[in-house]
Nucleic acid binder design. Structure first.
Lengths: 340, 340
DNA sequence: TCCTTATTGTTGACCGGTCCACGCAATCAC
DNA sequence: GTGATTGCGTGGACCGGTCAACAATAAGGA
């Protein structure tokens, strides 16, 4: 590899002058030309590793996500990368798989690599490492954070409770009274709280036995939970799934149980991942402004990096909104189900 | 940050000795203990940037994918990261978005960062940069490569033509004679070649006007193409989609056109992305061994890195296989469609 | 004319590790 | 007892940039 020193020799100046030309600092035009010519002739490219060592900055940002297999996080990754590229940064991607030990190792390596900043999306496996995150020597931000926002780190997320409320309000406005829930528990309990609040306003409740946890280990977890929910509550007129992928499973379970959606049963999801708008029935869901979130979070971090200050320790909550599509409708008028 | 020199001073030895302890080279146990104690007391962590500069190796591998939004590539990314982590490497992710200029910049930066290796998945936007890839100073491998495998770089992929053949043979074995195709063109033409070969064996053809290109720009491209295909060929008994996401769109278009799948119309996809096994009807598709591919490709690269040699310049083709699910069945026995 | 203030470019230290040649003891064979 | 081998540890150069202090030359003000 051709180094700065070689370019300097070729142009008859010092390393430093070459450095100045590359960095765009004031250099007499005549000299700059000579240097630029030498750079071009030798095909010189600055060595970023060396620069990083000298400056302590790597133009690299780490991103933690639980997994990329979930489309929600895919979209986050996609957008984070876009914003980073726009600012000239690179993305170091690490999946945590909700594994605390794996997360710890990744964190250690990122620190040793001196990334300029770290964005953590999703909480599950990382929560335990929060103290470690708090006193990292680079800015850290959290996003898509549902549980106990720690007060030492900035967060860009949404009001999950309110998002759940939107789903509940929609179902109530349609006239639904009995809803079952398929959820990732305990992670998604906020969303359920919101749903319950909407029902509670009208004096209705969503009892605990109407909430079914999807087994996270099995790929059929969502399907099984939905099937169980429908079997246990044949009088339910709606399903709320706390994640779109679960909602897709629920749609399937409903179909197999002989329900028509939305005529017999409404299904409402959460996230608004790309594919749910194109299935039939298209899914009514609470849209999570993922890309906006990714953008804000990254820009928050980069501002902190450039001002060399700790990021504003604030919580920024974006507004989720309901997207009404074909999977929800008023409940069918049918003989009232009698218990016993 | 605490440096090696400080640890050395604390332990009463030289930097080099500390380095040896960290690297696990032979050091007298007694000395090693003193050094380890100093490391623990000071909380020393080696600076990987400095190490990279000195050794010229960064323990970092770059990955190019067209996008992460497509579940096919998500799975590839997921698996690549897993393998890298297992070997102690980090992942630098770059999306190309089929943009040659963006790809060029990324490539330049990765080179300047001296990544240890680069894996390129998918071809579209990158093909133009092949010469640049060929004389990179680090090993490069290609995967999921459909067009003209260049002979200067190792490739881990599948035989796309054969994969298409599998789809065609399946449809023929079921008895289908008239199939329409929804495809990303021209990228997926190999797959169609294979399909055609299967039909040709029985003296049947898949005419050009039965092949519909999905507009890549629009999110409804697949849907529109499928709808057009069905409208233009009402006598078709099967759809072959060259990508599962297109197949999902096709299922939808079929439903809206009033076809029952698989009774009236069979749908066969390509890729076997995670979600298509859980929809109803579950999708019959040609399974692409993505994870195996990712694994082989990464391990090929890492072998090259560790032997400091150019990677074996070979083409490794994995075997795709057909996964028969619910979306394909023998064609309905129905009055033969008369043209006019 | 002389001194002050800019403007460029030079010099040498430094970032935090690793590599390599070598000194020094202790061990071994003869 | 002596020379050869081996095991540990030292010192200094080096990776390829950047930074800060300074020297040199040019321009501006009194």
């Amino acid at each position: 590899m051709v180094t700065m020193a070689e370019v300097a020799a070729r142009a008859g100046v010092t390393k430093q002058t070459v450095s100045n030309v590359v960095a765009g600092k004031s250099v007499r035009p005549e000299t700059a030309m000579r240097v630029r010519a030498a750079i071009a002739e030798l095909g010189y490219k600055p060595n970023l590793v060396a620069r990083s060592l000298a400056t302590g900055t790597t133009m690299t940002v780490g991103l933690f996500v639980p997994t990329v297999a979930n489309p929600f996080y895919s979209e986050v990754v996609e957008e984070v990368e876009n914003v980073l590229v726009r600012h000239g940064y690179n993305l170091l991607l690490a999946t945590t798989h909700d594994d605390a030990e794996r997360t710890r190792q990744h964190l250690e390596i990122l620190a040793a690599r001196s990334v300029d900043a770290l964005l953590v999306a999703g909480d599950a496996g990382v929560t335990a490492r929060l103290p470690m995150l708090a006193d990292a020597k680079f800015p850290v931000a959290l996003c898509a954070w549902e549980v106990d926002p720690p007060d030492s780190l900035p967060v860009v997320s949404i009001d999950y409770e309110h998002a759940g409320f939107l789903a509940g309000r929609h179902l109530r406005e349609l006239g639904h009274r009995r809803v079952v829930v398929v959820a990732d528990l305990p992670a998604h309990s906020r969303r359920i709280d919101g749903l319950r609040r909407a029902f509670a306003r009208d004096g209705l409740s969503v009892p605990d036995d109407a909430v079914f946890a999807a087994a996270q280990s099995s790929p059929d977890g969502g399907f099984d939970a939905a099937a169980a929910a429908l079997a246990a509550h044949p009088d339910a007129t709606a399903i709320f799934a706390t994640r779109d992928v679960l909602a897709l499973d629920a749609l399937e379970a409903a179909r197999q149980a002989g329900h028509r959606v939305p005529e017999d049963l409404s299904v409402v999801g959460f996230d608004d991942i790309a594919q749910v708008g194109r299935t039939r029935p298209a899914l009514t869901t609470v849209a999570f402004p993922k890309r906006q979130m990714a953008q804000q979070a990254v820009e928050l971090l980069l501002r902190a990096v450039e001002s060399a200050a700790a990021p504003a320790n604030a919580i920024s909550l974006l507004r989720p909104h309901l997207v009404v599509r074909g999977s929800s409708a008023p409940p069918a008028v049918r003989p009232h189900h009698t218990t016993r």
